[in-house]
């Protein structure tokens, strides 16, 4: 159970309460980053409830919207501290696949957990992955795939990343993915649910 009233309001999706409490705490001199952390605890609970089937997709999306609204209030006060996210992660759906639902869910949870997420979108060519990783120096890249026919695209993308001399950790996600697929394409981790993805990120970033 969440003890903090703000975390709880976030987990219960009480939008007005969340925004009100964020303003109140800011006004009361609470450090903006501490408020973000409290919100993230609520977000993690939302993710858990989604995972367990208690919450539905639209509630997960709503949680993202509430978080966004809260961040809009907090951001001007985070200047100077704004670089203090847990780390950067690059994510995209591989070439040939245009499914973005799973990708967007995991992005929402990662952002909610405090990561800086670069979303490359869908049908992303391998060159674009490599380019983004060279640019951001992100230690973790996520590839989403739903179509079994796109396994080779995933394999080629990972080969391209390795070929460019990057030692980025690679996680692949999608509902048919398993250990065999992971080994075949040469990824480091795999996840079949958004919350598993967040766990892997925590492991990679030691957060």
């Amino acid at each position: 159970m969440l003890a903090d009233t703000l975390s709880k309001a976030m987990a219960e999706l009480e939008e007005e309460q969340v925004l009100e409490q964020v303003k109140e705490r800011l006004g009361g001199g609470v450090a903006p980053l501490a408020i973000v952390k409290t919100l993230q605890e609520g977000m993690v609970e939302v993710g858990n409830r989604f995972q367990s089937g208690e919450y539905f997709l639209s509630e997960l999306i709503m949680a993202g919207e509430i978080m966004k609204g809260a961040m809009d209030i907090l951001e001007p006060h985070l200047s100077g501290e704004s670089g203090e996210h847990k780390g950067t992660i690059v994510i995209g759906t591989v070439k040939g696949d245009i499914h973005d639902l799973g990708k967007n869910i995991v992005i929402m949870l990662l952002k909610g957990s405090g990561y800086n997420v670069i979303d490359l979108g869908v049908d992303v060519p391998k060159e674009k992955f490599v380019e983004a990783l060279q640019e951001t120096k992100a230690p973790l890249v996520g590839m989403s795939v739903l179509l079994t026919s796109c396994q080779e695209a995933m394999k080629e993308t990972i080969e391209a990343i390795r070929g460019a001399g990057l030692d980025t950790r690679v996680i692949i996600g999608g509902n048919y993915i398993d250990e065999t697929v992971k080994n075949h394409v040469g990824a480091d981790y795999y996840a079949t649910s958004a919350t598993d993805g967040v766990k892997v990120a925590a492991e990679v970033f030691g957060a």
Binding site: L13, E54, Y55, F56, S58, E59, I61, M62, E65
Partner: peptide, 12 residues
């Protein structure tokens, strides 16, 4: 019903 919040609450 924004994000179906009321419907889902009623469901639960």
């Amino acid at each position: 019903d924004r994000f179906g919040k009321n419907f889902l609450k009623a469901y639960r």
